[in-house]
Design a binder for these strands. Structure first.
Lengths: 157, 157
DNA sequence: ATATCTGCAAAGACTTTGCAACCGC
DNA sequence: GCGGTTGCAAAGTCTTTGCAGATAT
């Protein structure tokens, strides 16, 4: 993770931006996450243990991380952006439980290959993709018909 | 398209809701769309030719259409919801040009089959999926390096 | 020293909700 | 007539922006 922080700082330097204390703390917290964080979530993690880092700065730093190519932003339909490391991006997609909201990652090279084929056939050049499957996870599939889920979960490994 | 309107009205009846003039007009306009509409967009189409139909009612009716299983809401990352017919939903996904925003639809049964496999392997039962490919379309791929702001680039080597 | 940053508050974009008047059934 | 519905305005989310004071280089 040290490496990514360094990459970020190099990016800042190259872009003529400053490596501030806040940016380092936010980036560090971001790289420490295991899955998908919202700006708000990262803010709570950082703000908890550090002196007054504003939510606004978290948003701005996440945008920098995106520009640096170190973060990807996703939208899983709940209206807000969730961020994840760019490096963990390699060949993985998401399956989201519509009941409890749990997000599981998976990878499929076969699917990726097919995507490439299709895209080429349509004259597009692919940059990236999002594949999201929605359904019931094992647990929720068992307990059918049970109130509103929405338990944000976050299952830290 | 008549059929879908009827389905909607049947849904309303079944749910003890009323088939109002506004709902019919909005549903009609929605079924007349060919691709993806935002609430705002549908509002403009309807509002233009009809007496005072509020944006709020469009939102509410789109929600009803979703509940009726006649519409699907998608989020392509620009922050707002886009709606499309559920019936055109059969086996198709999207490829979005990151340059001009053009959305093209495509279908792949092979990919769908693979998805099913994966999902089952993970213990999930699939309800629906979203596959979005992002890249440059033929036109934009030709005129490289032209974009407006958007050029995040800088990809750390 | 100075141009960039920060944090607060305020604005913005999109969507939902409260409420009095309204209209299907 | 009753209960759902409408449209306005207001509130609610999530995110961005304006600005004065603070800070990295």
């Amino acid at each position: 993770m040290k490496a990514k922080l360094l990459q970020f700082q190099q990016y800042l330097h190259r872009a003529g931006l400053k490596a501030t204390r806040q940016r380092e703390l936010i980036a560090r917290a971001f790289f420490a996450t295991t899955t998908h964080v919202s700006a708000e979530g990262l803010y709570r993690q950082v703000g908890g243990r550090n002196p007054r880092i504003g939510l606004v700065t978290v948003y701005r730093t996440l945008k920098l991380l995106k520009n640096a190519g170190l973060a990807h932003e996703r939208q899983f339909g709940d209206g807000r952006g969730l961020f994840e490391h760019a490096s963990s991006e390699r060949h993985h997609d998401h399956i989201i439980c519509t009941e409890c909201g749990k997000i599981t990652e998976f990878a499929s090279c076969e699917i990726e290959a097919l995507q490439e084929q299709i895209v080429r056939r349509l004259g597009f050049s692919i940059q990236y993709h999002k594949l999201e499957l929605y359904g019931l996870c094992r647990d929720c599939g068992a307990n059918v018909s049970r109130g509103p889920g929405k338990v944000s979960a976050i299952v830290a490994g």
